[in-house]
Amino acid sequence: MRSHAHAAVCGLIVMSGAAMADQDDVILEVTGKIADGPATLDRAALQTLPSVTINTSTVVTDGVHAFSGVLMRDLLDSLNAQGDQVMAIALNEYAVGIPMSDFYDYDVIVASTMDGKALTRDGKGPLWIVYPRDDHEALQDIRYDYRWVWQLCRLDVR
């Protein structure tokens, strides 16, 4: 199934006719109370921030997985975000408000790979908000579980 998804992505890339499309495509848009907003970020822009890996289980998968990406607070700091809440919006228009304090209380990341493989749009990609669930008992709660937004495409700082 996953291999099919990859095939689909590859097909999409070939069809767009750009060899490095996956590096240059905008994968995250940040709007709201930031310094020079709205900002659009591609993979290369995200890779300028320090990479962080979290090993944790999730409520929708079995076992423990290694998620790599950038810390949400690093990302927001780099954009000089000033709000109390961040609205995370997925490709299917799923939207959830996350308090800014979460990112400073916990090492919440915007993961782009799981177990070393890039997250894709026909899976949970391209970006997945991952909490260090196994490290904090407080995070093993349904009220945190709905903040794990996959297929993330936009952040609105409010």
Partner: peptide
């Protein structure tokens, strides 16, 4: 299509 694929996945 990708979103539906993600859901089935």
């Amino acid at each position: 299509f990708d979103i539906l694929s993600g859901r089935i996945s």
